[in-house]
Design a protein around this nucleic acid. Structure first.
Lengths: 232, 232
DNA sequence: CGCCGTATTGAGCGCTCTCAAGCTAGGTGG
DNA sequence: CCACCTAGCTTGAGAGCGCTCAATACGGCG
């Protein structure tokens, strides 16, 4: 829970304020919770938002920060299903199963707004433009990680760097940003080992396609990277 | 276009009859098209439903048959994004981009019903239970092919065989069905070559985990297959 | 400043790919 | 009806990409 001022400040910029701000009177959940801040959570790095097998009740809108969703396979490998950044909605994939199939964990300090699914449905019914937006978001998530089907490690990693650059907020320079996840996380998402990720990043750096120093990265030759990634 | 009798016969069993049958009077599209059959298409094997870059206007409900969606990468490889069977809806992933990003092709003789997206939105707004069902379907598609993140070829193929068995209609015997796609298609979906698919199927057969004769397959030891696939 | 998780780099191995040669099944035409 | 024909499937041998294991370097945080 965070203080009211910080909350309302954030909410004005949030695409999902209709879910949180009491403009939409008919939602009984709003009436029971006269302060929207009550639905907001702050997560520290590595803190868990939900576990698999938790009963599905809420979607989560990311106000600030970054999360990953993953599950652990029989051999103990962490298989990352997706990364979620500011403005993304978490939990759509859970609707059909009724419980969370994955764990969701904060990669950095993160603020999320909890949206009870029942209210979500109600609000969609009342608000056609919001409904259209949600279909848009879900459609976008259906296309997430399309590059995972690429054959080589280089292709997938190149496409990944471009994907992240479009979804994260840039630093000072265009196409420069901070990777919120570890090499291991990148590998667990791209089906590569951390070593392979590191090796290919070094190779991109050597070829002056990117500048990289630990988490800080800048794409120097976007066209070249797109060529490798096989993205138009 | 097919004859009225055959059409209405099919529609009664279809979850999406609300989109097609004139029970829902307010949809002006229904009023302009007094015969639902006009929206139905028959596709022969290998016939194309839509191409990439075609403007997105319609969703497609599969009445009968099987399709694949794919795109061709820079090296000419066909990368298959998904297989779609009877009862599935095609086109959700296209909502956000405004045009079809993939090609959709029939694997076998197929019947689809065309659902104009504008009418779809209208109908969702009028029909809360349908809206819930659509969210359910999209959520399901978000989880499709979760096993593609598995590491080994055996894992992915084992999971694939189980997935398909659950989505296709069984033949005479439980867990026996006809694979609607080629070895090459399976490989293009699972990121394997046709040779590797063939080799592993032969190996499963040798180990009496499955019975397989060309397209006809029967799962003999489901538990064993689940173990390999790392599925609970 | 020292610790420990994370990242980098190297050497060797193995799974899957490539290339190639038979084999099978289903469709076509004589 | 059967011989052919072709696309798809199977199987084998060898090569290469990415993995495993290992050692070193870095960097964030106490």
């Amino acid at each position: 829970m965070i203080d009211q001022d910080q909350n309302s400040q954030n909410c004005e910029q949030c695409d999902f304020s209709p879910f949180c701000i009491a403009e939409n009177k008919p939602v009984h959940w709003m009436q029971e919770n006269n302060a929207a801040a009550k639905q907001q959570f702050q997560l520290k790095k590595n803190e868990v938002l939900y576990f698999p097998q938790n009963t599905f009740r809420n979607l989560y809108a990311i106000q600030q920060g970054n999360l990953k969703t993953y599950h652990i396979d029989a051999d103990g490998n962490e298989l990352i299903k997706g990364f979620y950044f500011k403005g993304d909605i978490l939990g759509f994939e859970t609707i059909y199963s009724g419980h969370y199939l994955l764990s969701a964990v904060a990669l950095t300090p993160t603020v999320v707004c909890e949206i009870p699914y029942d209210n979500f449905l109600e609000l969609l019914q009342l608000n056609p433009s919001l409904q259209k937006y949600v279909l848009y978001l879900m459609s976008q998530q259906l296309n997430a990680g399309f590059y995972l089907s690429s054959v080589t490690a280089e292709q997938r990693l190149a496409a990944f760097l471009i994907d992240i650059s479009l979804r994260l907020e840039p630093l000072d320079t265009p196409l420069s940003y901070l990777l919120p996840m570890s090499r291991q996380d990148m590998g667990n998402y791209l089906r590569l080992t951390a070593e392979t990720v590191s090796r290919i990043l070094s190779q991109f750096k050597k070829n002056k396609i990117i500048m990289i120093d630990n988490k800080k990265i800048q794409i120097l030759r976007l066209e070249q990277l797109k060529l490798i990634a096989d993205i138009p």
